[in-house]
Simulated assay, not measured.
Amino acid sequence: MATVSPGDRKDLIGLIVSDHRAAERLFAELIAGAGDAQHRRDLADHLTTELVRHSVAEELYLYPAARRALPDGDQVADRGIEEHADIERILKDLEGVDPADRTFDELIGRLYVDVQDHVAQEEREVLPRVQDACDADELRELGELVARTNAAAPTRPHPSAPDTPPQDLVLAPGTGMIDKLRDALTGGDAR
Protein backbone atom coordinates (compact mmCIF):
# COMPACT_ATOMS: atom_id res chain seq x y z
CA MET A 1 0.00 0.00 0.00
CA ALA A 2 1.29 3.46 -0.90
CA THR A 3 2.30 6.06 1.66
CA VAL A 4 0.67 9.46 1.47
CA SER A 5 2.45 12.76 1.82
CA PRO A 6 1.55 16.13 0.35
CA GLY A 7 4.91 17.15 -1.07
CA ASP A 8 4.21 19.33 -4.08
CA ARG A 9 1.32 17.17 -5.21
CA LYS A 10 -1.72 19.05 -6.44
CA ASP A 11 -3.88 15.96 -6.79
CA LEU A 12 -6.72 14.87 -4.49
CA ILE A 13 -4.43 13.06 -2.06
CA GLY A 14 -1.85 15.86 -1.86
CA LEU A 15 -4.45 18.57 -1.27
CA ILE A 16 -6.20 16.59 1.46
CA VAL A 17 -2.95 15.84 3.29
CA SER A 18 -1.88 19.46 2.93
CA ASP A 19 -5.18 20.55 4.52
CA HIS A 20 -4.55 18.14 7.39
CA ARG A 21 -1.14 19.70 8.09
CA ALA A 22 -2.62 23.22 7.97
CA ALA A 23 -5.27 22.23 10.54
CA GLU A 24 -2.58 20.72 12.77
CA ARG A 25 -0.67 24.02 12.74
CA LEU A 26 -3.81 25.95 13.73
CA PHE A 27 -4.53 23.48 16.53
CA ALA A 28 -0.96 23.77 17.82
CA GLU A 29 -1.30 27.52 18.15
CA LEU A 30 -4.74 27.30 19.77
CA ILE A 31 -3.70 24.64 22.25
CA ALA A 32 -0.56 26.60 23.18
CA GLY A 33 -2.94 29.31 24.41
CA ALA A 34 -0.80 32.14 23.08
CA GLY A 35 -2.28 35.53 22.30
CA ASP A 36 -5.18 37.49 23.67
CA ALA A 37 -8.83 36.43 23.57
CA GLN A 38 -9.45 38.09 20.19
CA HIS A 39 -6.48 36.32 18.63
CA ARG A 40 -7.71 32.96 19.95
CA ARG A 41 -11.23 33.68 18.66
CA ASP A 42 -9.78 34.57 15.25
CA LEU A 43 -7.75 31.34 15.23
CA ALA A 44 -10.81 29.28 16.14
CA ASP A 45 -12.85 30.99 13.43
CA HIS A 46 -10.11 30.37 10.88
CA LEU A 47 -9.88 26.73 11.95
CA THR A 48 -13.66 26.42 11.60
CA THR A 49 -13.53 27.80 8.08
CA GLU A 50 -10.73 25.47 7.07
CA LEU A 51 -12.34 22.36 8.59
CA VAL A 52 -15.72 23.08 6.99
CA ARG A 53 -14.16 23.67 3.56
CA HIS A 54 -12.10 20.53 3.92
CA SER A 55 -15.13 18.45 4.92
CA VAL A 56 -17.08 19.69 1.91
CA ALA A 57 -14.19 18.77 -0.42
CA GLU A 58 -13.93 15.28 1.04
CA GLU A 59 -17.68 14.73 0.86
CA LEU A 60 -17.89 15.92 -2.74
CA TYR A 61 -14.81 14.18 -4.13
CA LEU A 62 -12.90 11.82 -1.82
CA TYR A 63 -15.84 9.83 -0.54
CA PRO A 64 -17.52 9.39 -3.93
CA ALA A 65 -14.14 8.20 -5.29
CA ALA A 66 -13.88 5.76 -2.38
CA ARG A 67 -17.43 4.51 -3.03
CA ARG A 68 -16.54 3.85 -6.70
CA ALA A 69 -13.04 2.45 -6.27
CA LEU A 70 -13.04 0.47 -3.03
CA PRO A 71 -14.93 -2.75 -2.36
CA ASP A 72 -15.99 -1.40 1.05
CA GLY A 73 -16.24 2.17 -0.24
CA ASP A 74 -19.76 2.75 1.07
CA GLN A 75 -18.70 1.92 4.63
CA VAL A 76 -15.53 4.00 4.30
CA ALA A 77 -17.48 7.02 3.03
CA ASP A 78 -20.30 6.66 5.55
CA ARG A 79 -17.80 6.52 8.41
CA GLY A 80 -16.03 9.66 7.19
CA ILE A 81 -19.32 11.52 6.80
CA GLU A 82 -20.37 10.51 10.31
CA GLU A 83 -17.07 11.78 11.70
CA HIS A 84 -17.54 15.07 9.83
CA ALA A 85 -21.01 15.47 11.35
CA ASP A 86 -19.55 14.97 14.84
CA ILE A 87 -16.83 17.54 14.15
CA GLU A 88 -19.35 20.04 12.76
CA ARG A 89 -21.49 19.71 15.90
CA ILE A 90 -18.48 20.65 18.03
CA LEU A 91 -17.69 23.55 15.69
CA LYS A 92 -21.27 24.76 16.02
CA ASP A 93 -21.01 24.55 19.83
CA LEU A 94 -17.77 26.54 19.65
CA GLU A 95 -19.41 29.44 17.79
CA GLY A 96 -19.86 32.40 20.07
CA VAL A 97 -18.06 30.88 23.07
CA ASP A 98 -15.79 33.46 24.67
CA PRO A 99 -12.16 32.30 24.54
CA ALA A 100 -11.81 33.34 28.20
CA ASP A 101 -14.52 30.81 29.13
CA ARG A 102 -13.05 27.40 30.02
CA THR A 103 -15.70 25.82 27.77
CA PHE A 104 -13.74 27.24 24.83
CA ASP A 105 -10.65 25.20 25.73
CA GLU A 106 -12.76 22.12 26.47
CA LEU A 107 -14.39 22.33 23.04
CA ILE A 108 -11.03 22.91 21.34
CA GLY A 109 -9.70 19.84 23.16
CA ARG A 110 -12.64 17.67 22.05
CA LEU A 111 -12.35 19.00 18.52
CA TYR A 112 -8.62 18.28 18.45
CA VAL A 113 -9.10 14.67 19.54
CA ASP A 114 -11.88 14.06 17.00
CA VAL A 115 -9.99 15.70 14.13
CA GLN A 116 -6.73 13.90 14.97
CA ASP A 117 -8.54 10.54 15.09
CA HIS A 118 -10.21 11.28 11.74
CA VAL A 119 -6.96 12.42 10.10
CA ALA A 120 -4.95 9.46 11.40
CA GLN A 121 -7.50 6.93 10.20
CA GLU A 122 -7.87 8.65 6.86
CA GLU A 123 -4.13 8.92 6.20
CA ARG A 124 -3.41 5.41 7.45
CA GLU A 125 -6.31 3.58 5.77
CA VAL A 126 -8.40 5.60 3.33
CA LEU A 127 -6.02 7.79 1.33
CA PRO A 128 -3.47 5.07 0.51
CA ARG A 129 -6.25 2.77 -0.69
CA VAL A 130 -7.87 5.48 -2.83
CA GLN A 131 -4.43 6.41 -4.19
CA ASP A 132 -3.79 2.77 -5.16
CA ALA A 133 -7.26 2.27 -6.65
CA CYS A 134 -7.43 5.43 -8.79
CA ASP A 135 -5.13 6.40 -11.63
CA ALA A 136 -3.00 9.54 -11.55
CA ASP A 137 -5.17 11.40 -14.06
CA GLU A 138 -8.32 10.86 -12.01
CA LEU A 139 -6.57 11.97 -8.81
CA ARG A 140 -5.25 15.08 -10.58
CA GLU A 141 -8.72 15.93 -11.97
CA LEU A 142 -10.26 15.45 -8.52
CA GLY A 143 -7.56 17.71 -7.07
CA GLU A 144 -8.49 20.43 -9.56
CA LEU A 145 -12.14 20.10 -8.55
CA VAL A 146 -11.21 20.32 -4.86
CA ALA A 147 -9.21 23.50 -5.49
CA ARG A 148 -12.18 25.08 -7.30
CA THR A 149 -14.65 23.92 -4.67
CA ASN A 150 -12.60 25.44 -1.85
CA ALA A 151 -13.32 28.89 -3.27
CA ALA A 152 -17.11 28.35 -3.04
CA ALA A 153 -17.37 26.07 -0.01
CA PRO A 154 -19.25 27.08 3.14
CA THR A 155 -17.17 28.78 5.80
CA ARG A 156 -19.41 27.97 8.78
CA PRO A 157 -20.56 24.66 10.25
CA HIS A 158 -23.95 23.39 9.09
CA PRO A 159 -24.30 20.09 10.96
CA SER A 160 -27.89 19.52 9.85
CA ALA A 161 -27.26 20.24 6.15
CA PRO A 162 -27.33 17.31 3.69
CA ASP A 163 -23.91 15.73 3.26
CA THR A 164 -24.57 13.12 0.61
CA PRO A 165 -25.15 13.47 -3.12
CA PRO A 166 -27.10 14.90 -4.78
CA GLN A 167 -28.38 17.29 -2.08
CA ASP A 168 -24.90 18.36 -0.98
CA LEU A 169 -23.91 19.16 -4.56
CA VAL A 170 -26.88 21.48 -4.92
CA LEU A 171 -26.74 23.17 -1.52
CA ALA A 172 -23.00 23.58 -0.81
CA PRO A 173 -22.33 26.38 -3.35
CA GLY A 174 -25.39 28.36 -2.20
CA THR A 175 -24.54 27.83 1.43
CA GLY A 176 -20.97 28.95 0.71
CA MET A 177 -22.22 32.11 -0.96
CA ILE A 178 -24.46 32.92 2.01
CA ASP A 179 -21.62 32.24 4.45
CA LYS A 180 -19.27 34.51 2.50
CA LEU A 181 -21.90 37.26 2.51
CA ARG A 182 -22.33 36.86 6.29
CA ASP A 183 -18.54 36.93 6.68
CA ALA A 184 -18.32 40.15 4.66
CA LEU A 185 -21.11 41.79 6.67
CA THR A 186 -19.57 40.79 9.99
CA GLY A 187 -16.01 41.65 9.04
CA GLY A 188 -14.98 38.06 8.24
CA ASP A 189 -16.06 36.81 11.65
CA ALA A 190 -17.39 33.24 11.39
CA ARG A 191 -19.36 33.48 14.61
Rank of each mutant, 00 (worst) to 15 (best):
A136G: 02
L60N: 09
E83C: 05
R191H: 07
T3G: 03
S160D: 13
H118L: 02
H46E: 15
A120M: 11
E123F: 00
D98V: 03
D137H: 11
G176L: 08
H84W: 05
A32I: 07
D101A: 02
T49V: 13
E88C: 03
L12Q: 06
S5F: 13
D42W: 07
I16K: 03
A172C: 02
E83P: 01
H54Y: 11
V52D: 10
G14I: 08
G80E: 04
A2W: 07
A32M: 06
S55Q: 11
G176P: 04
Y112H: 15
P71D: 14
P157I: 05
A161M: 12
E24P: 00
R67I: 10
R25N: 08
P165R: 02
K10G: 10
L91P: 06
H39L: 12
A120L: 08
A161T: 09
R53K: 13
F104L: 04
I87Q: 10
V126M: 03
S5W: 12
T48Q: 15
G7D: 10
P166E: 05
C134A: 14
V97M: 05
V126W: 09
L62E: 04
G176C: 08
K10R: 14
G176Y: 04
A23Q: 10
R40K: 10
L145A: 13
P6D: 15
A65L: 12
R124Y: 07
T149H: 03
G33W: 05
P173S: 01
E122H: 01
K180C: 05
D101Q: 02
V126C: 06
A147M: 04
L43D: 08
D101W: 03
L26I: 11
I108C: 04
G109Q: 02
